[in-house]
């Protein structure tokens, strides 16, 4: 695969927490305009992977490039500025800030106030739930609303790569449905998405390529059709 078609390519990534190794030799490619999913159980290393992509967890080894450009040495804020946006509902929100301010913090690098207003208006159109909560403190939102806020906070940047870390985490089935409808819409807009999930059935319904991560190593890599037929799907909720 040429680097040009891949928005993100990770090669030979190793990370560790202290002396305990977490990820071993992880290779992942996210193609432009496609949804790529990484499936894994609790503790498999999904969140570590996501944090390593943003350099919040430091890589011990390996390289990372974005559209062919090597970003391995870039600090977190530079990667975000370059267009990687992470939405992790587990990371919570800025609780004491209003929903509006939370979104503005998400759009940290949009300097143009007019553009910011436009983007906010767009967000409120696609996330009507948030519009009703505009001035409410983020800490008082319900679980579903907070997931919406987390996604909106990342999407407002129109990122080159959107990383969704377990958007279905802790949500009622009806909310999971709603969240994945949004993911589908984003996919239709040709946004490049790396979807990290435990809920395999849902993830496969939107993704085109899939990876399976177990104990910090990638054990499957291929199209979702192959993944759906593989032995990993015997237990669809990993």
């Amino acid at each position: 695969m040429s680097d040009e078609s891949a928005i993100l390519s990770i090669r030979g990534l190793d990370t560790s927490y202290g002396r305990i190794p977490m990820l071993r030799d992880v290779n992942i490619e996210v193609l432009r305009g496609q949804v790529c999913c990484v499936l894994g159980a609790n503790g498999a290393g999904k969140t570590t992977l996501v944090k390593a992509i943003l350099n919040i967890v430091k890589a011990d080894k390996g390289s990372m490039s974005m559209s062919g450009e090597d970003i391995s040495t870039w600090p977190t804020h530079r990667r975000v500025q370059a267009g990687i946006a992470l939405s992790a509902s587990a990371a919570g929100s800025f609780q004491k800030m209003s929903v509006d301010t939370n979104l503005k913090m998400g759009a940290y690098y949009i300097k143009d106030t007019k553009l910011l207003e436009e983007r906010l208006a767009e967000i409120y159109r696609s996330f009507p739930v948030l519009r009703e909560r505009l001035q409410q403190k983020a800490g008082t939102l319900s679980g579903g609303e907070r997931t919406m806020l987390a996604i909106a906070r990342a999407v407002i940047n129109k990122p080159r790569l959107l990383i969704l870390d377990e958007p279905s985490l802790g949500l009622a089935p009806i909310m999971v449905e709603e969240v994945f409808n949004i993911v589908k819409q984003l996919a239709l807009q040709q946004m490049s998405i790396l979807l990290v999930e435990q809920n395999a059935v849902k993830a496969l319904s939107v993704a085109s390529t899939g990876y399976v991560i177990q104990k910090g190593a990638i054990v499957f890599c291929g199209s979702v059709q192959d993944l759906a037929k593989s032995e990993f799907m015997d237990n669809p909720v990993m």
Binding site: I56, A91, M97
Partner: peptide, 13 residues
């Protein structure tokens, strides 16, 4: 309020 999320949003912590 949330150091990790601040990093994720791209704030130069």
């Amino acid at each position: 309020q949330n150091k990790e999320l601040s990093m994720m949003t791209g704030i130069n912590v």
